[in-house]
Design a binder for these strands. Structure first.
Lengths: 275, 275
DNA sequence: GGCGTTTTGGAATAATTATTCCATTTTTAC
DNA sequence: GTAAAAATGGAATAATTATTCCAAAACGCC
């Protein structure tokens, strides 16, 4: 047997474990078995509703290779593995996908097709956010902003809609907040006072004004909450709490669905925390 | 045979048809078969991943009763019926829902729970948009705005983020556009010139300024595209093209996911149509 | 209450699908 | 280049699962 059989003893019991195991063993697998791994990884969602023969055909291997693969993963066979996916199967239901197909069918570039793409991008972003959201960072951010006197919100360009919605929600919830828009090239920096906090939002390509304001606030000892796209963003270096949001772009534009969901949750949580 | 067999000839080919058929025949079915219908209706989402025996057990009937039921619906047997559900199965990622549960588990009111709710609201909105989007109205709206000289965008309060994102996208795509924000109570109404078009956005409770601007534009012979929540909205009366978007609220705040998806699709389509 | 009709349950069978096994090929190590 | 080890494909078999069929039960009608 291969070096892999150290892993043979325990079969993954959740989809998450399954993913990890898959990633861990894929390298160092012989050709046919790797084809299995690749195809399985790319079609996790179809395992629940496929037969050995179908999956094997998709991976372009004989059924027996796929059986071996299941056993390497630690299962007694395909059926046992499939059970995991059948139990976890959640209905991403129904006509939704059919309808999406219809929308896209008009052909690339038609308004309906574009709409279909943006809907899809939004949905993927939300799902990714559900999976990746950092609960600890979110709690931190809520704590920082709840303790602040005034919340200063800054987000320009593509981040501006988010900033303005935050300002709206804070206003409705009676949280003292100020929206910094670059109108008239004034940066209203003097409005930052000790005890305040800054909520800064920016995505690649990062806007300088936003980063500069955040740095400035930091230097003056104010707390900074960063809402950005990656942990490697320049904003992440100056934030006391870092919230990252995975947004799926379609074409040049991002959907903002995930970003807004996170932003509202943050704002509402802060609003309730302040009573 | 029963009175039902008039329907026997054609088997439902989509989930939607299946639903209708089910509803249509359930009354007037003998006891065991009705149990099948009820259980199937309540577990549509598990058909793809279940066996005859499992479903029969769930409905508390012998397998043969379930087989008969499938045939009454017009299928050759269970397998053929199941195929419909296996094919239509849309990849709603397996652990997405698990993770959502985890987020919500923190307890009502915690930041994570809120985030979970907003993600869910966003996703539902997007799905509803996919199902309800009016392709004809969208095409009309694109045509109107593409033909305009300048596009005037107005959306206040909760609609403002949408308006500002539209302004951003139009700018990036070199479409002449002007964002009307209420700054300083100026309404810049004189900026509306013959040949321009207005893109107005408002949701209940509808903002007067937006409606007033739209009416004014209409009176002057400009084309008006309305982006709103219902067909009965006051904005719908003054629009040359009406786009409605079903948004799921959570608490007092709406997710905007669906609205933004529609808005970007519209903007990008207009951008490409203009060259 | 008896007779024709419909419905029912379960056992028998057919079809499909998973799994094993081993002869053959390919790779690896020397 | 050769021998040992690993990987492979496919045919044979086992297991599961779907489907049919029919005797028995329930029902409706007169």
């Amino acid at each position: 047997m291969t070096a892999v059989d150290t892993a043979t003893l325990t079969a993954p019991a959740t989809i998450e474990e399954f993913r990890e195991r898959l990633a861990a063993i894929t390298d160092g697998l012989p050709r046919r078995l790797r084809q299995c791994a690749d195809h399985i990884a790319a079609n996790l969602d179809r395992i629940a509703v496929s037969t050995v023969a179908e999956l094997a055909a998709g991976a372009d291997v004989p059924p027996s290779a796929l059986m071996r693969f299941c056993q390497i993963l630690g299962y007694s066979g395909f059926s046992e593995m499939q059970k995991l996916f059948r139990d976890a199967y959640s209905p991403g239901f129904p006509d939704y996908s059919t309808r999406l197909e219809n929308l896209k069918q008009g052909g690339a570039g038609t308004p309906s097709a574009l709409l279909g793409e943006f809907i899809e991008a939004g949905r993927l972003s939300l799902e990714a956010l559900a999976k990746s959201a950092d609960e600890v960072a979110l709690a931190q951010a809520v704590a920082l902003l709840s303790a602040a006197d005034t919340v200063h919100i800054i987000g320009l360009r593509r981040a501006f809609p988010v900033a303005s919605y935050l300002a709206y929600v804070f206003d409705k919830m009676a949280v003292p907040a100020m929206l910094h828009e670059g109108t008239g090239k004034l940066d209203h920096r003097h409005a930052l006072r000790p005890g305040d906090a800054v909520l800064a939002i920016t995505f690649a390509p990062y806007s300088e004004e936003t980063i500069s304001l955040a740095q400035d606030a930091r230097a003056r000892g104010l707390k900074v909450v960063a809402l950005t796209d990656r942990i490697t963003s320049p904003l992440a270096r100056v934030g006391d709490a870092i919230l990252t949001v995975p947004e799926v772009d379609f074409g040049a534009f991002r959907s903002l669905s995930a970003t807004l969901a996170l932003a509202i949750a943050l704002a509402v949580a802060v609003g309730s925390a302040r009573g």
